[in-house]
Structures are given as C-alpha cells and as structure tokens.
C-alpha cells in the first residue's frame, strides 16, 4: 500500500505531468513542422483578429447558432468542460498537494461545491454516453475508443468522489483515483482528447479563412 502510494504520489505523478507536457509540446511541434512543410496556407492566411473572433464566439455559451439549436447539449458541454478543468486545479485536496510538492498555492473551492461539480462531470459523461447510444447520428459515428475515452474521463471523478465521501473501500479508491487521473493526463496528447490542444488551432485557422478571405461569419 505504502509502496504503491509513494510511487503514484511521487515518481508516477512526475512522469504523468512530464508525459502530458512533453506530449502536448511534441504534438504541437510536430503539427507545426508538418504544417510548415505541407500546409503553408495555414500560416499565410492566419489572422489574429479573425482567429480570436471565431474562438471567442465558440467559447461563449450559446454564441453560435448550433449551440442555440442544441441547448441541452450546449449547457451540458459547457458545464462539463468547465468542471473538468476547475475541479482538478481548485479542489482543496489537489491545491494542497500542489502546495506540498511545489510550495505554491491558490484559492480553492469549498468541498461542497467541488462535490457538485464532480457529480456534474459524471452526469455529463452519462449524458454523452446516452447520446452515443440513443442518437442515431452519434451512434453511427461512435467507435469503441470513444466509449473508452469517456470511461477514462469519468473514472478519476467517480473514484475521487468515492474517496472524498470515504465510502467503504475508500483507501483503494483513492489509489484508483490517483492512478486513473495520472493515466488520463498522459492520454491527452495521444488520443482524441487532444482536441483540447487543437480546438484553438483549428477554430483560429478556420476563423481566419472565414473572416479575412471569405468575409463571412463562422458561428
């Protein structure tokens, strides 16, 4: 138990962060290089103003027409992504771990709110799973890896909630939580989760093309 804990709290956490950061940098760098070689247009037509115009329209809830057409999906997605980012950084336990390891600290969320946000993430995962099962057009597109990724996202939140509530078996769940969270972090650069990296890139490029060349809106 202690050996496992020491490993996941120490070296593995370091490895997870390293893999995540280096992996993301590698992905961005290799795409940058490939684009330089094969997609020079991306650089030539890039316009910061129109890129930001598009990105902002797609970061503000209900700012794009398709978001208004799917209000439930939009609401769930925004809550999901917000909580997905906020909870890992601003949960008190995590903030304390950062403080312990690197001696930096920031304000953290009250545990009650963090609990609700965690439940929201899990609920959203169920919602997404439901879409994948019940909506024909989504089911048609869904692959095994899509479901696995959803599971990988939900697991750290599920186990974290369990550990936080100290339900029976919580010590094991705490370790499951730590390990699954670290795995999730390492998966980001190498799975579809990298949409986190490429969202601003694609949106920015298309925004530039739509704004500067095609003089049209893209939301």
């Amino acid at each position: 138990m202690h050996a496992v804990f020491n490993f996941v709290r120490g070296p593995m956490a370091g490895i997870a962060f390293a893999v995540f950061i280096i992996g993301c940098l590698y992905q961005m760098a290799s795409m940058w290089r490939l684009a330089r070689k094969k997609d020079a247009v991306v650089f030539h037509y890039f316009s910061l103003f129109y890129a930001l115009r598009s990105i902002i329209h797609w970061m503000v809830p209900f700012a794009a027409l398709n978001m208004r057409r799917h209000p439930v999906m939009t609401g769930v997605t925004f809550v999901f992504h917000l909580c997905l980012f906020a909870v890992p950084f601003f949960l008190s336990s995590h903030a304390i771990l950062f403080k312990e390891s690197w001696d930096v600290s920031w304000a953290w969320l009250p545990d009650g709110i963090a609990d609700i946000m965690t439940l929201a993430v899990m609920g959203a995962c169920l919602f997404f799973l439901g879409r994948r099962i019940f909506l024909r057009e989504v089911r048609y597109l869904t692959t095994v890896s899509d479901v696995l990724i959803l599971f990988c996202v939900a697991l750290p939140f599920f186990s974290g909630f369990w550990a936080g509530q100290q339900w029976p078996g919580f010590p094991v769940m705490t370790l499951v939580h730590m390990i699954s969270g670290e795995i999730l972090l390492m998966l980001i650069p190498f799975t579809r989760l990298r949409h986190m990296l490429f969202f601003p890139v694609i949106r920015g490029y298309m925004g530039s093309e739509f704004g500067a060349v095609r003089r049209a809106r893209d939301w």
Binding site: H2, A3, F5, R9, A163, Q166, L175
Partner: peptide, 18 residues
C-alpha cells in the same frame, strides 16, 4: 514521515475521517 517509514496513514481520508 508515514510515507518514508511505510507505516501509518497517508491518504486524505485515512486521517481526515468523516
């Protein structure tokens, strides 16, 4: 210390018991 000695509670919930 618990971690170093591989003895005693180290997980959040092991000390901060509800």
């Amino acid at each position: 210390c618990h971690g170093e000695r591989k003895a005693g509670p180290v997980l959040c919930g092991e000390c901060h018991r509800r």
